[in-house]
Design a protein around this nucleic acid. Structure first.
Lengths: 153, 153
DNA sequence: CCTAAATTTCAGAAATTCCTGAAAGTACCG
DNA sequence: CGGTACTTTCAGGAATTTCTGAAATTTAGG
């Protein structure tokens, strides 16, 4: 890793946290590098700083874009793409929360609705159903609040 | 898997979500089984319902306990341990959020404080430092709010 | 079109995580 | 104690995820 000491420690930490955050080590490190960089970086800058393969960087950037966590800058007369994280950290956090909701909550909401929709009340699994319905209602309540809060912003 | 169809679908879904939630498939499935069960279950009940090895269940239960997500019941005259999820789903969610904060946020808070503490302001990495400080301040703000809300409950 | 710079894809190697059966541990009872 | 019913630990095999280099694809000039 080819970074000054403070940055290196920061990047290492984000790598380790990456796994706990459902992204992998490399993706976490790429984000950390972009986050502290004082100018937009291109893929090869990241290769150089992290000492990982070019293709790995490409995949990592793709994943971060799928998470909506990057801004793309192009420099006129330069064919390469440059990337930054949004300047406003609060915006980053909002995006993170949104995306996690999309991946971690919404699918469950959908599945619970479907399951409960198509099973009759007279089911032999009546009790289990009640428990699932309870869960569904709590999730609906909480996502409802969340989308209210989102509107206010 | 030895479960009635609605439950099986529910359990399968929680297995798949498990990975997105930082626990693994089996642990997710174990929790789902306990969640819908209408009585406390012992380890062998879970083995039977999920068709996985006894030792895997043991490890899964241990992990769920580390997450504080189980209640333990003992039946007098029976040597086995029985487990349930808390009845109050809202309590489950609170625990989940607490534990995730503990694993996903608090370590970062600690590391950032340490890093920024020991590097002088005159550092050549002044710019990167500023960005890290910004992040630290936002996390402090947010965890501060969170502990206020916690007190109210 | 053709070339060259840059990016993406992807098969399989490397690393990591998960799962199992066997063995060891624990606790209770007679 | 010795036996029994249950639980935990753990080495190593199975499965999954991550990473790489080589090849394919895209893009912008000339």
């Amino acid at each position: 890793m080819n970074l000054p000491p403070l940055c290196e420690a920061f990047v290492q930490h984000f790598g380790e946290m990456g796994s706990r955050w459902g992204i992998n080590r490399t993706v976490g490190q790429i984000y950390a590098v972009l986050f502290v960089a004082e100018r937009p970086l291109c893929a090869d800058d990241i290769v150089e700083r992290l000492g990982i393969s070019r293709s790995n960087v490409s995949m990592g950037l793709k994943e971060l874009q799928a998470w909506n966590l990057l801004r793309q800058k192009s420099v006129p007369g330069d064919r390469r793409e440059f990337f930054t994280t949004p300047d406003d950290i609060y915006a980053i956090v909002r995006t993170l929360v949104d995306e996690r909701k999309k991946r971690e909550i919404d699918p469950t909401l959908t599945v619970l609705r479907e399951l409960l929709m198509r099973s009759p009340d007279s089911d032999p699994e009546r009790n289990e159903q009640a428990r699932m319905r309870e869960m569904l209602e709590l999730i609906e309540l909480m996502t409802g609040w969340y989308s209210e809060v989102q509107k206010l912003e």
